[in-house]
Amino acid sequence: MRSCLTPIAILAAILAFALWNGSHMADSTDRWRDQLQQVDALAQAEAWTEALDALAESYEDWSERQTYLHIVAKHDSVDDAEAMYRRAMAFAATRELTEFRAELSDLRDQLRLLTEMERLDIKNVL
Rank of each mutant, 00 (worst) to 15 (best):
S3L: 11
C4W: 13
C4F: 13
C4V: 07
T6E: 09
P7E: 08
P7M: 03
I8C: 11
I8W: 03
A9D: 00
L11N: 05
A12N: 09
A12E: 07
I14P: 01
A16E: 05
L19M: 12
L19R: 06
L19D: 02
W20S: 00
N21Y: 01
N21R: 14
N21S: 13
G22P: 07
S23Y: 14
H24P: 00
H24S: 12
M25Q: 11
M25T: 15
M25K: 03
A26C: 01
A26N: 14
D27A: 13
D27I: 08
S28N: 12
S28L: 14
S28K: 06
T29L: 05
T29A: 04
D30I: 09
D30W: 02
W32I: 09
W32R: 11
R33F: 00
R33V: 12
Q35D: 13
L36I: 11
Q37H: 06
Q37C: 03
V39S: 01
V39G: 00
D40K: 09
D40A: 13
A41G: 02
L42A: 11
A43Q: 03
A43C: 05
Q44W: 09
Q44A: 09
Q44V: 10
A45V: 01
A45M: 07
E46Q: 13
A47S: 15
W48Y: 13
T49Y: 06
T49G: 15
E50H: 08
A51C: 05
L52D: 10
D53A: 15
A54E: 06
A54T: 11
L55T: 13
L55G: 08
L55V: 04
L55W: 08
A56R: 14
A56F: 01
A56C: 00
A56Y: 01
Y59S: 10
Y59P: 03
Y59R: 15
E60S: 14
D61N: 10
W62F: 15
W62T: 03
E64L: 03
R65N: 00
Q66I: 06
Q66P: 02
T67A: 10
L69M: 15
L69H: 04
L69Q: 13
H70P: 06
I71E: 03
V72E: 04
A73S: 15
K74M: 07
H75I: 09
D76G: 05
V78P: 05
V78A: 00
D79Q: 12
D79P: 00
D80T: 14
D80Y: 04
A81L: 03
E82V: 10
M84C: 02
Y85S: 04
R86Q: 14
R86W: 05
R86I: 07
R87D: 08
A88D: 09
A88N: 10
M89E: 13
F91S: 04
A93C: 04
A93F: 04
A93E: 15
A93W: 06
A93L: 03
T94L: 08
T94Q: 13
R95I: 00
T98W: 02
E99L: 05
F100V: 00
F100S: 08
R101I: 02
R101M: 01
A102K: 12
E103S: 14
L104W: 05
D106L: 04
D106P: 00
D109K: 12
D109Q: 15
Q110G: 05
R112M: 05
T115Y: 11
T115F: 09
E116Y: 14
E118S: 12
E118L: 15
R119H: 11
L120E: 01
D121T: 06
K123A: 10
K123E: 09
N124C: 04
V125T: 04
L126P: 01
L126R: 10
L126D: 09
